[in-house]
């Protein structure tokens, strides 16, 4: 009796599984990423261990070390409050994030807080990081 040899063709690569994994990874990175507009200057937030988790949404006011301002990534001048009010009108979160450099002097920061409080645009928070850069 002659036995037939098994076919030695290599099995087809399960490429569908690879595509699935790549899709999962892609969707994961898309979901966990937060696309915040970065400021046009360097901002290193201060360190604080008592910070709370930050929700999404809201308007970001960036403050450079020398007091320069940016709203949602765009540099602004003296009309910063009008820019924030316009951006807040398009955002339902009622949250203003002050993303200030850790070395900025309070004489630059406190007038911003007072003006935002007077404008009653919602909650105002200072962005901090729980650990160093």
């Amino acid at each position: 009796m002659r036995l037939r040899r098994a076919d030695h063709r290599p099995p087809a690569e399960p490429i569908i599984a690879l595509v699935d994994v790549v899709f999962f990874l892609l969707v994961f990175f898309l979901l966990v990423a937060r696309f915040d507009a970065s400021a046009p200057f360097e901002v290193v937030p201060p360190i604080a261990v008592s910070g709370q988790d930050m929700p999404g949404g809201g308007v970001t006011l960036s403050v450079a070390r020398d007091g320069a301002l940016a709203v949602n990534g765009d540099a602004v001048g003296d009309d910063w409050l009008a820019q924030i009010e316009a951006a807040a009108a398009r955002d339902a979160a009622r949250l203003i994030r002050i993303n200030a450099h850790r070395d900025v002097a309070m004489r630059h920061l406190m007038p911003l807080v007072s003006a935002l409080e007077a404008a009653a645009l919602g909650e105002v928070v200072i962005v901090v990081t729980p650990s160093g850069p």
Partner: peptide, 29 residues
């Protein structure tokens, strides 16, 4: 398709900056 997916994946992995940010409220609503 796989090529495009890989390119997208590598793009997001390279350009993403992961910063752990918290907040301290200074003016509550």
């Amino acid at each position: 398709l796989i090529d495009v997916l890989f390119i997208l994946l590598v793009y997001f992995m390279v350009t993403s900056v992961y910063r752990d940010l918290d907040m301290i409220p200074v003016v509550r609503g």
